[in-house]
Structures are given as structure tokens and as C-alpha cells.
Amino acid sequence: MTNLTPLNKTSEKRRTQFFKNIKKAVNQNNLSHEQKQNLCKQEAAYQKFKYQPDALSEEQRLAQFKEILASQSALFYECASEELAEKLEELLKEHSDENEILIGKNSDVEKFGLTKSETINFIEVESFEKNKENYNLTSALTTAFAAASETGTLFLSSGPENPTWLNYLAKCHFVLLDKSTLCQTYEQAFELGRKQQESTNQPFPPRSINMISGPSRTADIEQTLTLGAHGPIELIILIYSSKENASEN
């Protein structure tokens, strides 16, 4: 937590000046009757608006999600939760020369018995400064709390199980996504996040919400799209359906 430095004289003066300028500006706006009416109308329309595209079925959401992610160069695999361990082993072999994979503390991977794998060496990490030596490892695995099919976007939150830096330093980023959390819009994904935080008595939003929609890229060299600018060169999404969820739905 930041040790809040009490406002010193200069910063207090700056703050006062800042708000004084704003007040002056706001008072200068002498609007005509017509402009005022127009503003009122705009205000009512602003308050009323809700982004509600035609609702998609679960199947349609999945199809949209897959299609968009593929166009954004992400890889996508679907399996049952019991098959996750096997799938991960297979993919790791395919995409990395190392058998190590970075994970956060109490990560979801334990829930699915992934850590029992004999071929994968899971390395549990915390803060970056404590685990600096691992920064050049090839693979990391984190979990998404939701996804939005509208733009093929994963939603991840910070926390001990998902140290944010893991999403950006590895060359190959694996993300676990529970199929039942695949929403259609950003608003729905946020709502899900809000509920999850509330259920664990944590404030919403968490320190960091990371929306990820593909591997890292740049077009800064002559406008040519190139993958793996600073972050992962590969984004591999493992979407799983668990029996629990299936019966719930």
C-alpha cells in the first residue's frame, strides 16, 4: 500500500489552483435556452442507454469466441476438466523445449490435479522481485475469471493465484478458462467478476483486470504485423467444461 504522503504546501496549492481553473471554466459556460434543453435531452439519453446486442446462445458464443481468437492468432483447445492434465502435457511438449511452467500460488491447476503431472514441473511464484531468476522461462499458466466472445477477450484478475507479470513475461502463455464463464459482452464479464470478488469478500475491481485478446504484437516496423513484441509470442487457451458446471447449467 502507498504510504499516503500528506499534502505538502506546494501540492495543496497546486490542487487548489487546479480546481479553481475548473470552477472558472464551468462558470463561464453561459448556455442558451436551446443549448440547455439539448443538454437535458442528451443527459436523459445517456442515462437510459444500455449496450445490448442480440443475445447469443452458448454455442454461438463459443463459435464467435473461437473465430475471433483465431483471427487474432491465438490457439484454442477445448476439453473436459478431467482431460486438462493430459492436454497440457501434450501442448507443453509441442510448444516448449522446457518441462517447466510458472504458476501462481493456490492456482486453479491444483483443483484439476494438474500438479500431479509427472512430466510437468510447476514452479510456484509470487512477486516479480522474489522470482526474478525465472523471468526468462518459456511458459506460464494463469486462469481467466471470465471471457467475452464479442472480441475474443479473456478477463484475468490479479491475486496470489494469478501474479499479473506471468501474463506478460513468458514466451508461451497458457490460460485456463471455465466454459461456463464465457459471456458475450464486456459488461457481462465485469458483472461476473464483481460477483466473484463479492463471494470472497474482496473489493471490486481487483488491483488489476487484464483483458487479453491474443499474443503480443506490433506493427511499428513499416506497418507490418509481427507477433511477440514484448509479451507472449503464443497465447494458448484451454477451455474446459466441468461436470459440476454442466449439471448447473
Binding site: T2, R207, I209, M211
Partner: peptide
Amino acid sequence: SISTYTTFATGP
């Protein structure tokens, strides 16, 4: 349709 990374940072 969206940039690759969009991040909401809230406090330390």
C-alpha cells in the same frame, strides 16, 4: 476490434 491488451489498474 480490440487491442491485444487492455488493463484496468486500481491502486497498489
